[in-house]
């Protein structure tokens, strides 16, 4: 499934990183601890988090993640968004909680 498809199905907001909307998704990872994501997430996964700073994009890029979903109406900091656009990694948003959006994402990807 592509990032553009989950945006449509989960009704996600697109903050930036549109160059990566055709990225293929291999799975998901849910965590607000950056070292946890660094150590355990895999290439092609969608990262669900409430962290909104630039280091989120550094990790997404190093791990070659497909996209980031910010939960509960969190919005990316300006420098996070800037790096998302540079790297072409979509930063998406939802008003839903981590629990809800992860459950829906799991249903789509399982």
């Amino acid at each position: 499934m592509k990032v553009s498809e989950i945006i449509e199905k989960l009704n996600l907001r697109v903050f930036g990183g549109e160059d990566g909307l055709q990225n293929e998704i291999t799975g998901g990872y849910v965590s607000d601890l950056l070292s946890d994501v660094m150590g355990n997430a895999d290439e092609g996964e969608v990262w669900v988090t409430l962290q909104t700073h630039k280091n989120v994009m550094a990790i997404s890029s190093l791990k070659e993640l497909a996209a980031v979903i910010l939960v509960t109406d969190h919005e990316p900091d300006a420098d996070m968004l800037e790096q998302a656009n540079e790297e072409g990694i979509p930063v998406l948003g939802t008003e839903k909680s981590t629990f809800e959006v992860s459950g829906e994402l799991y249903q789509l990807l399982k």
């Binding site: 607000d32 601890l33 950056l34 070292s35 946890d36 660094m38 962290q51």
Partner: peptide, 15 residues
């Protein structure tokens, strides 16, 4: 608060 400092860094490095 940034999500660092969970005490996972050095063990991650070693692995």
């Amino acid at each position: 608060e940034m999500g660092f400092g969970a005490g996972m860094g050095l063990p991650n490095i070693k692995r």
